[in-house]
Measured scan of single mutants.
Amino acid sequence: KSIMKVYCQICRKGDNEELLLLCDGCDKGCHTYCHRPKITTIPDGDWFCPACIAKA
């Protein structure tokens, strides 16, 4: 079994998992407080990182 360690693409830390959003496009993580602008609430439904939005 392989366990994927998810970490924030900005701060490179994997702590505060409850505030770590996973992109529905690329599965990369980003803390709500590292994202600019900050994300104050966990979004309902799908969330896409800035890189995936730029590709769309």
Rank of each mutant, 00 (worst) to 15 (best):
K1C: 03
K1L: 01
K1F: 01
S2G: 14
S2T: 13
S2N: 02
I3R: 07
I3E: 08
I3Q: 15
M4Q: 10
M4R: 06
K5D: 06
K5Y: 05
K5E: 06
V6M: 10
V6D: 12
V6K: 15
V6R: 14
V6H: 11
V6T: 11
Y7Q: 11
Y7I: 05
C8S: 00
C8Q: 01
C8P: 01
C8V: 00
C8M: 01
Q9F: 08
Q9W: 05
Q9I: 06
Q9H: 10
Q9Y: 14
I10C: 15
C11I: 00
C11V: 00
C11K: 00
C11F: 00
R12N: 08
R12F: 04
R12E: 13
R12P: 00
K13T: 06
K13E: 11
G14M: 13
G14H: 10
G14V: 14
D15K: 11
D15P: 03
D15W: 03
D15I: 04
D15H: 02
N16K: 15
N16G: 12
N16T: 12
E17P: 15
E18I: 02
E18L: 08
E18C: 04
L19Y: 10
L20F: 14
L20V: 09
L20H: 03
L20G: 02
L21W: 04
L21R: 12
L21P: 02
L21G: 04
L21Q: 06
L22H: 11
L22G: 12
L22V: 11
L22E: 14
C23Y: 02
C23R: 03
D24Y: 01
D24N: 15
D24T: 14
D24R: 10
C26R: 01
C26W: 00
D27S: 08
D27E: 15
K28F: 15
K28D: 10
G29D: 02
G29L: 06
G29F: 11
G29H: 06
C30K: 09
C30I: 15
C30Y: 13
C30W: 14
C30T: 14
C30A: 08
C30N: 04
H31S: 01
T32L: 13
T32E: 03
T32D: 04
Y33I: 04
Y33F: 06
Y33T: 15
Y33P: 03
C34F: 01
C34K: 01
C34I: 00
H35C: 09
H35K: 13
H35R: 07
H35P: 08
H35F: 07
R36D: 11
R36L: 14
R36T: 15
P37W: 03
P37I: 03
K38T: 12
K38V: 08
I39H: 05
I39V: 11
T40Q: 12
T40W: 09
T40H: 07
T40G: 08
T40V: 10
T40S: 07
T41Y: 04
T41N: 10
I42L: 12
I42Q: 05
I42C: 15
I42D: 04
P43C: 08
P43A: 12
P43W: 05
P43S: 14
P43D: 09
P43T: 13
P43H: 04
D44F: 09
D44P: 14
D44N: 15
D44A: 07
D44Q: 03
G45E: 02
G45W: 01
G45V: 06
G45R: 13
D46K: 14
D46M: 04
W47A: 05
W47T: 04
W47M: 03
F48P: 07
F48D: 05
C49Q: 00
C49G: 01
A51G: 14
A51H: 04
A51V: 08
C52R: 01
I53W: 05
I53F: 09
I53S: 11
I53K: 08
I53Q: 11
I53Y: 11
I53E: 13
K55G: 14
A56G: 02
